[in-house]
């Protein structure tokens, strides 16, 4: 096969014609995704403290081969002294807020998703929290305690 820079304009156009001929894009799907993408902009904020994804078991090497769909998926996020651990089993979600400078007061945890009301719960004395009936799709968490708040990056459940 020729290198791209060795192809003349007409040859490149001929290859393009072949490449383009085999694609299929459902206009309805495209339009639905375009609207969702446009609406994503309403989530823009300038002052949130964003946590980093520390680990996602679904990105582990070999996860595809090992995964049976039964083992829980675990995600963790970190910023400074605070770590947020999430374990997803089916539609249930168990979380833990680990705060090295922990005070005794509970943290408020919001589960956010596009097009839905935030769901809010509080951590128990050990820092655990739980959400049930969580459908697949993009989510993020916002943890608020005393003087700080922390937002995780979006992830697809």
């Amino acid at each position: 096969m020729s290198r791209w820079d060795e192809l003349g304009d007409d040859e490149l156009m001929a290859e393009l014609a072949e490449a383009v001929a085999e694609t299929v894009d459902d206009p309805e799907v495209t339009e639905r995704r375009r609207l969702a993408a446009s609406a994503a902009f309403t989530w823009r904020t300038v002052d949130e403290e964003l946590a980093e994804l520390l680990h996602d078991s679904a990105l582990d090497a070999g996860a595809a081969v090992r995964s049976s769909g039964d083992s829980p998926r675990s995600l963790s996020f970190i910023r400074g002294a605070v770590t947020i651990e999430i374990e997803v089993t089916g539609s249930s979600l168990l979380g833990e807020v680990i705060d090295d400078d922990a005070s005794d007061e509970p943290a408020a945890v919001s589960l956010q998703r596009p097009g839905a009301e935030d769901r809010v719960t509080e951590t128990d004395a050990s820092g655990f929290f739980r959400f049930d009936d969580v459908a697949p799709g993009p989510v993020r968490f916002v943890v608020v305690r005393g003087g700080w708040s922390l937002t995780t990056p979006w992830a697809t459940l």
Binding site: A37, W43, E48, P114, R140, W154
Partner: peptide, 11 residues
């Protein structure tokens, strides 16, 4: 996936 990508881009 598409929605997550755009949300990630916003942030």
């Amino acid at each position: 996936v598409s929605q997550t990508v755009w949300l990630r881009l916003v942030e």
